[in-house]
């Protein structure tokens, strides 16, 4: 059936892609553009693993027709981090040990980032509510809540957590 060349603004760049009308945003992101950070878990909007931000709001890419996103700003997990490093939420998820298998995390992190964008200091109820469209099977959510609170600056780092992996060892000029 109908196909068209579409301009999609993804992670700040305009991408021209050929899409069929029935293709979902998730299919285009994952299989046409190779942006595989957005995951496919349930086929039909039951799990939230495919969450991307469209004009700043979390939506289900698996239930979003690609063609209807032509004039929108799409942000995927790949675009959340920048040259300066991971986004504060990504960093907090890593720091708090919020990820186990990691499969739900791109979606979860984008939902959390959108929450903090509109509510920089959410209470626990707001965090639970905002993430309730993203299923996680590994963690029991406990550490995800911690990560969001850490990213918001509500909860301090756990004492003794190493801030981040050490840089490569300095080259000793005396060595051959």
């Amino acid at each position: 059936m109908a196909e068209s060349v579409l301009k999609l603004k993804i992670n700040g760049f305009v991408r021209r892609v050929a899409v069929s009308d029935q293709e979902t945003l998730l299919e285009v992101l994952r299989y046409t553009l190779g942006l595989t950070g957005s995951k496919q878990g349930c086929d039909k909007g039951d799990c939230g693993a495919c969450t991307v931000l469209v004009d700043g709001e979390p939506v289900l890419a698996c239930l979003s027709l690609a063609k209807r996103n032509a004039d929108k700003e799409i942000l995927t997990i790949e675009g959340l981090s920048g040259p300066e490093g991971p986004h504060a939420v990504q960093d907090a998820f890593d720091n708090a040990g919020a990820m186990q298998c990691g499969f739900c995390q791109p979606g979860m992190i984008l939902s959390a980032a959108a929450l903090l964008e509109r509510d920089p200091e959410p209470d626990d109820e707001a965090i639970r509510h905002a993430l309730s469209g993203n299923l996680c099977r590994c963690t029991g959510y406990t550490r995800i809540f911690t990560a969001v609170r850490q990213a918001a600056g509500i909860e301090a780092d756990r004492k003794g957590v190493d801030p981040r992996p050490a840089p490569a060892p300095p080259v000793d000029p005396k060595l051959p």
Binding site: M1, A2, S20, D21, Q22, E23, T24, E27, Q40, D43, K44, C62, L65, K67, R68
Partner: peptide, 12 residues
């Protein structure tokens, strides 16, 4: 994955 059957999308 489950895929959508083919259709034409019209956007009035």
């Amino acid at each position: 994955m489950l895929r959508l059957p083919a259709f034409d999308l019209l956007e009035p």
